[in-house]
Each structure stands twice: as structure tokens, then as C-alpha cells.
Design a protein around this nucleic acid. Structure first.
Lengths: 226, 226
DNA sequence: TCCTTATCGATACGCTGTATCAGTCACGGT
DNA sequence: ACCGTGACTGATACAGCGTATCGATAAGGA
């Protein structure tokens, strides 16, 4: 039906303690502590010392809450100063700022991939990205394709990064059960290339993998932009 | 703890009607009908005409079920014949086969981005991908980076594709509420580049966007492989 | 001062994943 | 042939979830 960001908050005649920023902040704290599953309306309400149904004066549903949380977290991404450096440097800086927030709030990655980025901060982010790529005489289609490739890689790679750090494992230290299973599965001989990688290749550092892939994408964009 | 694919199914002394493939098939049917949310243990059990707790002889949790569903759906991806064409053609074919399945089962996209691809079909998929990129003398690191960029883009772009087809809208026909909201939000003047794209740029066809971005990534890989 | 209307607090419903436990059936050893 | 044993089933139960509903309440306008 309607869109969260166009629904006004109620005039607070009664009590000033509850507004959307407070609710979203509580939700974010819960997410940081226990992942998105921990963001329950009851949990948020309890953290604000309020009854659950009170939240429905500010939200229509839990989906609204997650939309607001996604946009608020997007707002945490510090957009670099516009217009400095060439487009490559600008895109690198944007990616770095995004990854920074995504590493601080792992749950944000799945929001990023599943919620339309149409909140105020999401729009600002997109505006910055398109402006960074834009140049006089560039066809709109080319612009969209380049932004698409960049965003697609960014979102996908962040997902992959989380997959490599399975639950219950500290960063860069895979869960031993999964690792030994992999060794066994690959040892069967039916996956020779995987086996080679598994034995020869050292574990990829997340940052290294991200940046290498990013350069690949930037190279591809460069080939199209000239 | 342990990994689903290494846990044996129980010896079926009593009844032959229930095994993992049947359970996963039921789960897939439910997902096709109502998305991942519709895949509940009670729903799967009802569809198999069985009491819910019976499933726990074959699974440890709902997470197991989703892991199995993800791998089974990965198995639907028809891996092209190995070794035909150059690496570019091979990667294009793999991407096309993947997108085909993802479009048939939209829910698969979020599984793809959130479940480790370590089931038998997932391993086969990765083996195919790495083998398609491999060549004599290529450093393992380069191989990993290229595969990483490809997979990252693939997963991210599929997510983006779903975001552009919001719930309640048929494919390529955005929900009108969201569209008119966007028009209003962009008209504020604070997003000039977005505004230009919104008015000048025609709606991107999903397939076109995907393929354009893929070529960008392939170009980038080519620049690194030589 | 009274009425209207927005807000609050509480209760309740249907749904979820899954722990528990008593009953039952099929098999293996003797 | 029998019977103990252990695997498997079916039923019930519990805590948690999102949220619909509704009477009580308190504030603002006349």
C-alpha cells in the first residue's frame, strides 16, 4: 500500500519518550547483540520499557521497522566528499565506507539485499553513486549499467563474505566442523579443482578478496566508460 | 555441530513413504506457492500427510530443511557441458543457467546469499566454475579472485533484480504506490542525477541489466587473466 | 465545562519451532 | 519360537512470535 517514509508520526500529545528514531535505535542495538532474529516487536518494546502495542502507533508492521532500520543504517555510511578524485577513487571510497558499516553491523547485509533502498538515506546514497559515475555526454543507459554492476558486486560480495564466516566461528577462523567436512567432501576425487584450491590456496583475507574483486569490476566499468 | 549432508537418514524399517527427497520436494512446492515464509515444518508435514514431529527423524531443525532445499535447487541448475567454448562463453552459460533457476524460484536467491554452498550440488557447481576459469600456469589466488568477482556479481545482481520487482507487482510492472512515491521523493530537487535517470532512463529490462553487468565483470576478469 | 478523538494498556488468537514422553512395532539373539 | 531391546511414531505441551481487538483514559477544542 503506502510507503513508511510518507506516513507521518503521530502528534505526541501524551508522552515525548517514544519516536521513530528511538525505536529504530533500540532495534539496532538488539540486532547488534543478537542478529536480525533478535529484533522482535516485543524485544524492542521491552528495551524501551513500553508495551508492545505502543509501537504500532509509529509503525504498521515489523516490516516497517526493518525498512526504517535499513535506512537508518544506510545513513551510518559516511558518504565521502563529492567530486574529489576521479570516478574510480570515488567508487572505491564509497565501497570502503559501505563495507565499514556492513562489517560493524553484519545483519545490515541481508537488509541491504532484501529491502528497497528508497528511504531518504538510501536515495542520498544512490544519488551520490550515480553522480560519482556521471559525466557529460554519458548515455543514461551506460550510467545505469555501471551503477548496477557496482551495486550488484558490492551486495553479492558482502553476502559471500558472511558465508565464509559461518555462525559460531570468529572472523577468519572457520568453524572446525565445517572445515573438516569440506576436507572430507573434497577428498573424494570428484572435485579436483576444488581440491587443488583447498590445499594450495591459503585462506582468503576478506578485505583482500573484496578489493581484488572490486578492482575487477572497476576495470570492467572503465572499459565501458571510455 | 555436524553438517546435514553427513548425517545418514534413518533406516526405514517402518514406512517407505518419507525420505529427504520427498520432504525437500514438498518444501520446494510450498516455497513456489508462497515464498520461503510458507516453508514451515507444519506445512511440509501437512503436505506429506504426516505429523510435524515425524520430520525430525530426517532433519535436526528447520535450518537443515532450508540447507537441503538450497542444495536441491542448486541441483536444478543445468551445468553446461564442461570444456566447450572459451572461458567467457562458459561463464556466460553458467550465469544463464543460474539465472534461469533463480527466476523460476525467486526464493532461491535469498537462500543463495545466506546458506553455505557446501552440499553435493553446491560443490559440483563450484567445481564447474573453478574448472571453467582454470588454465595452466594461472595462480590460485588469481583464480579465486576471478571466481569471487563472478559469484559476487551473480548473487548481488539477482538480489537487485528482486528488489526491482517489489512484492505485489508483476514482473516488470512496479507497484504503483512505490513508483509514485519515488517520483515524489525525487522531485524534491535534492537528487538531480536520480531525477535525470528517472525521467530520461526507460525502465531497465531485467535480462538486459543482468547481461550488461555480466559483460562488465567478464571484461574485468579478462584484464586480469592475461 | 462538556464532548470528541487520539492514545494507551491489556487481553487474546493463531501461528511458529521444537522438547518431551508414552506407546508400538520390527528386528536380532538365543 | 520367543522375547528383550531399541528404533520409530504420535500426541501433547510450551514459549515465543506478530498483531487484532476493545474498554479505559486523558488531552484539546467549543
Amino acid at each position: 500500500m503506502s510507503v513508511v517514509w510518507e506516513r507521518p508520526e503521530p502528534s505526541r500529545r501524551h508522552r515525548p519518550l517514544l519516536d521513530r528514531p528511538a525505536i529504530v535505535a533500540a532495534a539496532g542495538a538488539l540486532a547488534d547483540a543478537g542478529g536480525l532474529d533478535a529484533v522482535t516487536l516485543r524485544g524492542v518494546a521491552a528495551r524501551l520499557d513500553v508495551l508492545p502495542m505502543r509501537l504500532y502507533r509509529h509503525l504498521d508492521s515489523r516490516d516497517d521497522l526493518l525498512d526504517l532500520l535499513a535506512d537508518a543504517t544506510c545513513g551510518e555510511i559516511a558518504l565521502p566528499a563529492a567530486g574529489v578524485g576521479d570516478w574510480r577513487a570515488r567508487l572505491r571510497a564509497l565501497a570502503a565506507a559501505t563495507v565499514l558499516v556492513a562489517r560493524r553491523h553484519p545483519w545490515y547485509v541481508s537488509l541491504l539485499g532484501s529491502r528497497p533502498p528508497y528511504g531518504p538515506h538510501g536515495l542520498a546514497y544512490q544519488e551520490w553513486l550515480f553522480a560519482a559515475l556521471d559525466r557529460p555526454g554519458l548515455a543514461v543507459t551506460e550510467l545505469m549499467h555501471a551503477a548496477d554492476a557496482f551495486l550488484g558486486y558490492l551486495i553479492g560480495q558482502l553476502h559471500l563474505e558472511l558465508l565464509r564466516v559461518p555462525a559460531g566461528a570468529t572472523a577468519h577462523v572457520p568453524a572446525p566442523a565445517q572445515l573438516s567436512y569440506l576436507a572430507r567432501a573434497v577428498a573424494g576425487g570428484r572435485h579436483p579443482t576444488l581440491a587443488r584450491i583447498f590445499t594450495e590456496g591459503r585462506q582468503l583475507h576478506a578485505t583482500e578478496a573484496f578489493e581484488a574483486g572490486l578492482e575487477i569490476v572497476l576495470d570492467g566499468i572503465a572499459a565501458r566508460l571510455t
